[in-house]
Amino acid sequence: MEAVVARGLTYRYQPGGPLVLKDIDFHVSRGEIAAVTGLSGCGKSTLCYCICGAVHHNRDGVMTGQVLLNGKNIRELRAASLALEVGMVFQDPDTQLFSPTVEDEIAFAPENLCLPPAQIRERVEQALDLLGLAALREANPYRLSGGEKHLVALAAVLALDPPVLVLDEVMSQLDQAGKKRVAAALKRLRDMGKAVIAVEHNLEAVSFADRLLVMEKGELLSCGRTAELLADREFMEARGLIYDPPGL
């Protein structure tokens, strides 16, 4: 059974409005990292929202087609129980951090899952360790720098330990060390059998992804092997996704 399946997925913001997602079909297996790329406004973030159910339960738009998470149709899941199937790191860190300390922020998800305190402690320590945040444990998330906020938001979702992870551009504000730590964390999640979907503009940052989903104007153009797609410079350049400045 695939971890994520999208079948004939379409989405529009208003009934009768233009399609933001056009007939998207793809699947991501357990133990696989899929990167999603495309020009801004191509529907990447919307696709993320659809997969994690945020669209279905919280937005006014119209979604048709199907999204299955571990075989379960997201329409049939209660909004809160979706968190047991999928974890999502949103693009804007400021609207997803609300706790007084980094440690509390990370403990929030396992506390919601009713884990015993010892297990919560274990998950918090693992997440802090994996993303190199131990020194910021007592810091106020609201006062951190942009990149640090993203790391905390990711750590908070890692502690939820969902089978599917969706990340919307978490690497963009990270320094090299931060990018490496996130990459190492994602590879470890893959080895643990998780399915990871990561939206990213910077293709170097996700070159370790198993597959690359290329989107254009709401359509999914390709979902092949990352290495093969990246090697096809003509295709990528025509999509405006890579660019060689003239005269260099």
Partner: peptide, 26 residues
């Protein structure tokens, strides 16, 4: 809008999955 997004992200991390929750500290 921001408050709404905050609510979505709290829910995405399992807020109110169960009628009860546990705490790291006591």
């Amino acid at each position: 809008l921001k408050a709404q997004r905050l609510a979505v992200s709290m829910e995405a991390r399992g807020f109110r999955v169960y009628p009860r929750r546990t705490y790291l500290r006591r």
